[in-house]
């Protein structure tokens, strides 16, 4: 195994000033867990002091069982060539998160998308409310409790024979009244 010296050093550099937990996942991957409030200061610190100037990615995971949203900020240092994941969990009810588009302009796009898809509010976020959707009236669609299949069934016209994800070949063959050919049986998912 490769030695993880620079990853360990990074972990210390991030966790010590803020008194937060973290771990080295593998080489080039370090993650830290922090509070909702400390996220922006950790990010700002990493960007200005440690050279993690590239925001590679931001995402949100809906842990519906825990009733939490997990936010993951993935940042990258072009010098160290290490990814740092800054993770935090926020409440699912009236979710609100600090806006970090003053640190990275491009965070604006991610946040607009999250606002739309998960309903997380970012106070002071610029840009139109509609990002990918238009005139959306249901609950934010990427939440786990939104049933897209049901919604699609009710909203859009469905052609007969396509009620679910099942293999249509057998249905079609049945309808035509002939035997199921061998090739259809061979590749059918529900043997």
């Amino acid at each position: 195994m490769t030695d993880l010296i620079k990853e360990q050093k990074l972990l210390e550099n991030v966790t010590n000033p803020f008194k937060i937990k973290g771990r080295v996942i593998r080489n080039r991957r370090v993650e830290v867990f922090c509070d909702k409030e400390t996220v922006s200061s950790v990010l700002l610190y990493a960007k200005t002091q440690l050279g993690y100037i590239h925001l590679a990615h931001m995402t949100c995971i809906d842990w519906i069982d825990e009733n939490k949203f997990e936010l993951v900020y993935t940042i990258w240092s072009p010098v160290e060539k290490v990814h740092l994941f800054v993770k935090t969990k926020i409440d699912r009810e009236n979710p609100e998160m600090e806006n970090i588009d003053r640190i990275w302009d491009q965070a604006n796009t991610y946040e607009r998308e999250m606002r739309e898809m998960f309903g997380i509010e970012f106070p002071g976020l610029k840009g139109e409310r509609d990002f990918a959707l238009e005139d959306w009236e249901e609950i934010p669609p990427m939440r786990k409790d939104f049933d897209t299949h049901n919604y699609a069934q009710q909203t859009y016209f469905n052609r007969p024979g396509r009620e679910d994800a099942k293999d249509v070949r057998e249905t079609l063959v049945e309808r035509s009244g002939t035997e199921v050919p061998d090739f259809a049986k061979k590749y059918s998912r529900e043997r």
């Binding site: 590679a56 990615h57 949100c60 995971i61 491009q106």
Partner: peptide
């Protein structure tokens, strides 16, 4: 970014392409 909760389905898959920052910001 792939998250699994230990089932036969992915729990969350989030993809980030280059155009995400190129095309907007």
């Amino acid at each position: 970014y792939v998250a699994s909760n230990g089932t036969n389905k992915p729990y969350r898959v989030h993809a980030k392409g280059a155009a995400y920052s190129h095309g907007v910001t």
